[in-house]
């Protein structure tokens, strides 16, 4: 009885503390995933403050027909002061999907992923105070996306065009600009028999004076021929942009993004 009463008081304190910090935050997994405890251990330092926060928005279809190409948009713009965002999927054989640092760009990213089975897809945004704010969405899929070879691996076409970038810049009604870019790359997970992992590892989006806007660290579950959507706030718009980087085999990616 006594222990229960103490626990209840502690719980009440914890809840009111949580509420005092920010109304959007909570301590229990809103997606109720049996893998969350593992995710907490694997993805974050033991002492880090990790909270669920609806200000980190993950948009993805509830049911994804094509597990090889599931669209996901992450937006942590409501948080402010975001240092980095880590995107992962609890039930994917390769959990990490992408990590990005919005060094000047809006703290959000649109991309496409491969999923092996139905899973929460989560984005954890680290703010300047060191706290991780976690948002997410369940995606249901028949799956199989991670253990299938890419289309590219079965055709010689990509070898000639590997790393080729097509891109375009739009002015946004709400101010600033949007950059969309597509990179030719087969992106193999290494989980399909006989096909080694082959994926984009580092990308840097910068303006034409070299000031960085967004760093993207990719992992194996990014979809083939990836398309990224990045928004640039009005204050950081430039006359032109540039993307550079490399894949895990050292192939360079370098292209001007012109208006």
């Amino acid at each position: 009885m006594k222990i229960a009463a103490i626990a209840a008081v502690l719980l009440a304190c914890a809840c009111s503390l949580g509420q005092a910090a920010a109304p959007a935050e909570r301590r229990t997994d809103p997606l109720d995933s049996p893998r969350w405890a593992d995710m907490r251990k694997e993805m974050f330092p033991a002492g880090a403050r990790v909270v669920f926060d609806e200000r980190v928005r993950v948009t993805a279809p509830l049911t994804a027909e094509n597990a090889m190409n599931v669209p996901v948009s992450v937006d942590a713009g409501a948080l402010g002061d975001v240092q980095e965002v880590l995107v992962f999927a609890d039930f994917n054989p390769i959990v990490r999907i992408v990590r990005f640092e919005p060094a000047g760009a809006h703290p959000g990213l649109g991309f496409r992923i491969k999923l092996q089975q139905s899973t929460p897809v989560r984005a954890a945004a680290r703010t300047a105070d060191g706290s991780w704010h976690v948002g997410g969405a369940w995606v249901n899929t028949a799956g199989g996306g991670c253990t299938l070879p890419s289309t590219g691996s079965g055709s010689p076409e990509w070898q000639k065009r590997l790393g080729e970038v097509s891109s375009r810049v739009w002015e946004r009604k709400e101010g600033g600009e949007r950059i969309r870019l597509r990179i030719i790359h087969p992106i193999d997970t290494g989980l399909a028999a006989g096909i080694p992992a082959f994926f984009l590892q580092d990308l840097l989006l910068a303006d034409n004076t070299g000031r960085p806007l967004m760093r993207i660290e990719g992992f194996e579950p990014i979809a083939e021929n990836p398309v990224f959507t990045v928004d640039i706030p009005a204050g950081r718009s430039a006359t032109a942009y540039r993307v550079s980087g490399r894949d895990n085999n050292g192939n360079a990616i370098s292209a001007a993004i012109e208006k």
Binding site: T59, P61, P71, V72, S73, G110, W170, R180, V227, T229
Partner: peptide, 10 residues
């Protein structure tokens, strides 16, 4: 108009 795929779905 530069829509991301998730925006088109919405």
């Amino acid at each position: 108009e530069g829509f991301d795929m998730t925006e088109v779905m919405a």
